[in-house]
Amino acid sequence: MPLQQTQTDDIKIITVNLPRIDAAVAIQFKDSMREATETGPDHIVLDLSNVSFVDSSGLGAIVASKKQLPSGKKIDLAGLTPDVAKVFRLTRMDSVFRIYAHVSDLASRAAG
């Protein structure tokens, strides 16, 4: 699963290098996210700027990534492309996650 991890002192950025998070990859995505979020900083940001399509299974896997976090950790989302943002809005999952327009919004905040 192409999840690229970048770490600053207090944020772990996980960039999804996949065009789609759909039924075909949902289970694998959830498992890879568990592994990627087990260690490192408590604040995790999932960068979805390379993802152009998320279906209900993919959405479920992203929600599962939040639910399976070790206690004390939190996950935010960044870089939602228009069609992905629409799925989050329609299902009201945009109220469940803190969503940043760009991952750089967070990185600069963390640095500053």
Binding site: S56, L59, V63, K67, V96
Partner: peptide, 14 residues
């Protein structure tokens, strides 16, 4: 979706 994190739905969106 207005539920505690542990009860968030992972399916039923389709």
């Amino acid at each position: 979706t207005d539920v505690p994190c542990a009860s968030l739905p992972e399916g039923g969106f389709g």
